[in-house]
Design a binder for these strands. Structure first.
Lengths: 175, 175
DNA sequence: CAACCCATGTAAAAAGTTACATGATTAA
DNA sequence: TTAATCATGTAACTTTTTACATGGGTTG
């Protein structure tokens, strides 16, 4: 499981409340490791018990707590980064649908593929906007690596979008 | 959840025992929807209760059963293919590791990236062998669609491999 | 007769999703 | 003052992973 390590990374970049983390995940890191606020709060509580993070109450706010990474959390993150792991599994139901369509006869999947294509194009536009805004100028090591992560997303979206187009051609041509 | 539908699709292509399905998933469909034998057996039991599949004992084998898709299963598959769904989430821990490396300082990730690259290249070679063997000649609709599914895998592996190379260049250059 | 593949399961743990719930703060 | 957003949680459920377990058939 990597959610705690994604959270530790984000907290090292800048301390934040659970709510902030949830929004941060929606906006950036979460493109690569989505997490709901429920997961985040549960994980923060676990990490506090483990001594990896500490929460500081915020003056003037009844419930808000700002979390930061403690030395033990940093050590755990270093350990985890070093240990390696398997490439991710991707389970795409659309591919199963296509295969089912292949065996059952035409089932009108073009609209679903078009919808998927639109999603890839939208995500791609968002990634490119971030790339231009945050990584347009000269970069230090940290910036270059963060840019590389974004490029992974851009590459996959481009490839998926292009694949959708070939499938649409296939489906339209022999409709 | 799509595992039952992946199984129905596979059984429509050709009836099989749970064991056969597990091996079939290891070899082909499972690249796009991995499933362990435990999942498969449990799902077959559920689908039998639902009336979607029927198991036929095999003469001369104590335990072996061959499953096939019943009309209700076929109807369910048609329904599910039509209903659409979200694009898959991909959670790649290597990207989190890279981002942690970016904030913690160099943590020697090049070997992990190389390992990942080797994996992509191996998978790519396997996919290309299948493409040549099964989809080298003229194809009917079914073949064309199955080929399209394989091309999705090929495209993603190519893109991922290429990305690994750029990251290695980045990591080596500024080691 | 031993090793290996065939064939099927149970059990427990881990991870993620969905639904429900509540109160505080801020801006119109 | 009311609506939106901030902020935090609990509970139940589904799915996936990992470990354990067992016995039949085949081949050297």
């Amino acid at each position: 499981m990597s959610l705690p390590h994604a959270l530790l990374t984000s907290l090292l970049e800048r301390p934040a409340s659970g709510y902030d983390l949830a929004r941060r995940f929606d906006a950036s890191l979460g493109h690569f490791w989505p997490a709901s606020h429920q997961q985040i709060y549960r994980e923060l509580a676990r990490m506090e018990r483990a001594g990896w993070v500490a929460g500081q109450d915020v003056a003037g706010h009844a419930r808000k707590k700002v979390w930061s990474c403690r030395p033990a959390g940093r050590a755990e993150l270093v350990r985890w980064v070093g240990q390696g792991g398997q490439p991710p599994v991707v389970r795409d139901a659309l591919l199963i649908r296509l295969r089912a369509d292949a065996v059952l006869g035409p089932l009108d999947l073009a609209d679903q593929v078009r919808e998927r294509l639109a999603g890839h194009e939208a995500t791609l536009a968002a990634y490119r906007a971030i790339a231009e805004r945050d990584f347009g100028g000269p970069l230090d090591r940290r910036g270059r690596l963060q840019h590389a992560i974004l490029r992974a997303g851009i590459g996959l979206e481009e490839t998926s979008a292009q694949w959708c187009r070939t499938v649409l051609a296939e489906l339209d041509e022999h409709a």
